[in-house]
Design a protein around this nucleic acid. Sequence first.
DNA 1: ATGCGACTGGGACGATCGTCCCACTTCAGT
DNA 2: ACTGAAGTGGGACGATCGTCCCAGTCGCAT
Lengths: 198, 198
Amino acid sequence: MARIPASERRAALVQAALRVVSQRGIAHATTRAIVAEAGMSLASFHYAFDSRDELIDELIATVVAREQQAVLPDGLEGHDLRDLLEAGVLRYFDHLRADPEHEQAMLELTQYALRSPERHPLAVAQYDKYTELGARSLAAAAELAGARWTTPVEQVARVLIAFTDGLTLTWLVTRDDDVARAVAHAAADALSRMAEPR
Amino acid sequence: MARIPASERRAALVQAALRVVSQRGIAHATTRAIVAEAGMSLASFHYAFDSRDELIDELIATVVAREQQAVLPDGLEGHDLRDLLEAGVLRYFDHLRADPEHEQAMLELTQYALRSPERHPLAVAQYDKYTELGARSLAAAAELAGARWTTPVEQVARVLIAFTDGLTLTWLVTRDDDVARAVAHAAADALSRMAEPR
DNA sequence: ATGCGACTGGGACGATCGTCCCACTTCAGT
DNA sequence: ACTGAAGTGGGACGATCGTCCCAGTCGCAT
């Protein structure tokens, strides 16, 4: 094995861990499975990390920090706010369909964090990040459509996150594209009513 | 230990397993943890079940079959369909707040089932059951409000399930009642637009 | 070139997992 | 009362887990 400084090795291990969690679930993300995915030995793992928990914590933090695919990016066609929002949610849906395992991994990491009190803040931080990204997109969408949110945009973003979460979970189980599109339509409908023309 | 026929013991073990999963998560639902919760010995476990997987499968099936708290039960005040739907979702929210661990356990079981191909149908069956219950409630609500669903009621129910799932997940992480109520409001708003006066 | 700290490999530890085995006890049918 | 089946208890198995140890090797500063 090539000699790699511990800092880079940490990053490589986090990436490998994400792949393992995506493909086989967090329950199978053992230290051995992770180092095998990374092509390292067990010693390298515990040279870079004190414990498996430390890696999982860093995995969650990393994956949250890197989350940036906005749900409602600009450059979308759409005449009014409702159409714009629906297009945005559908864009997220495309992302979900393209890499279902990644979103499934996110859900599992959230639930994992939810199970221990000292890790709960990680899940909250994950959702705060989602909210921040959602709020930014919602603000941009309102700007584009010439509308103004009548509810605080952070609150609207929380609702948006709940809707996309529900869409994700339902689609991961049923794989029913039509239902997902109906959810996107209904969600955009509801969200658009939290704004008024400016 | 009192002598109990295997059939009753299976039921007792399933109940114990549900308690363990609710309180500590499915990862900690080991055979030993389950029999300890049930106050039995390990031998009793493998006398009643061939394997842990068999118990988990029966746990999911049992819990799905027993699911019956309708999201939109009758006896609700509410003038128009929108109010009726919102009251129904809020009633579900009350149920969630009263026993968060149970809904968290449901989510974990779903994700667990999602991770192996042979168990995937269990998750689908779980959602079919949800859909059936949701559809029944939606039909009743429309009846009460003198409305008619313009979209097939099963489709509406799928959207409803997605919304409640999102509400559940978001609230379990943030514990923000205001956001949950906003989600309920928005969801009812969107759903009510899938019907017309009769 | 050389010494020292950074890094690696492989094997081992104790804990815990699911499962199994076997001697034992209890109960129902005769 | 007797017997066979049903149910129980405790200990043990091999596998796998997270973690650790230590001898060895590499690369960089001197």
